[in-house]
Amino acid sequence: MTDLTIPIDLEAELKELARRHRAASTVGMSVLNLIGGQAENLLEKLPDSAKDRLEATTIKALDVALRAALKSRGVVPDQKSWLNTALTTAMGAAGGAGGLPSALAELPVTTTVLFRAIAGVAADHGFDPSEPDIAKECLTVFAAAGPLAEDDGADMAFLAARVSLVGSTVHGVIAKIAPRLSYVLGQKLATQAVPVIGAAAGAATNYAYTSYYQQMAHVHFGLLRLERSSGHPRALLIDMLREELSISTKSALIR
């Protein structure tokens, strides 16, 4: 327990961020149930040629997503969360229907929509995604563990790891998060490559990924907003969030 007395409004904010974090952590279960597999075994379903190209493909997808998403904000307004989810779900079904080749072709488009959704969440919290520092914060959300991760602690680690990206250029941030994200996107491609149920798996996977990254974006930018408005250091806010998650988990087990 921390010795700091938490103001009621800050406590309420942390409870809401904890709720979103829990919601993000559960969206991938339907995908794993659908394909009847475990997350750590998914990449084995990909051919070596695809695995070898994953990191380069991810860097390219992020670069395209960054440029396209920020340009489009001046033309197309930010969409509601449900609409972003519906759009990527449809794209996932189309990508999965054709197996791995169509899933690879769909990847940059879905990544762009995901980045655009994250930028929209940043704007909801009062930040301007067109500012380079906020664009980097948007990219940092992609360093989260992913919806198919089985270790909730990895998502807390992503919130704390932001300090390692301070001073990096936008492309420097992309280079640093690409190895982690390539693994996560590799899991996505593997679910879409499952024979027979590729379209269904693609739709379910994109639904999970979009829901996950939007929720984690709310956690990320909610913490950033609290950091700036409360004056409390980020590390302390993360500890408070971790404590809130622990309390809510214990309460759920008691019920």
Rank of each mutant, 00 (worst) to 15 (best):
A200S: 14
L139H: 00
H232L: 15
C138A: 15
A23C: 04
T89C: 01
A157T: 15
T2R: 05
L226R: 00
R73W: 11
T88Y: 03
S81D: 14
E13S: 13
H125V: 14
A56S: 12
G172T: 07
E131Y: 11
L100E: 06
F142Y: 09
L236A: 10
K176G: 07
T205W: 06
D133R: 11
S102E: 12
L181G: 00
I59C: 03
H171G: 12
A160T: 14
V170K: 04
P147E: 03
H171A: 12
A208F: 04
G36C: 04
A217F: 08
L62C: 03
S246W: 05
A154I: 04
G36W: 14
A94V: 14
T5V: 14
V173A: 03
T205R: 01
A252G: 11
V121W: 01
G126W: 09
S164F: 10
A50K: 03
K80D: 12
K250R: 12
S102M: 15
E244D: 06
K71G: 08
E137H: 09
L66N: 02
R162I: 13
L148S: 01
E55F: 06
T2V: 05
L100M: 10
G146R: 00
A145T: 05
L241E: 02
D63W: 08
T140Q: 07
T191C: 15
G99Q: 01
A203E: 06
D151C: 07
G172H: 03
G153N: 07
D3V: 02
L107D: 01
P47M: 01
A157Y: 10
D48G: 06
A178L: 02
A199H: 13
A145W: 00
E244Q: 12
V219D: 00
M1T: 10
E150W: 12
E11V: 03
Y207R: 04
R255Q: 09
Q192S: 14
D3A: 08
R67Y: 14
G126Y: 09
R242Q: 11
V31D: 00
S25V: 03
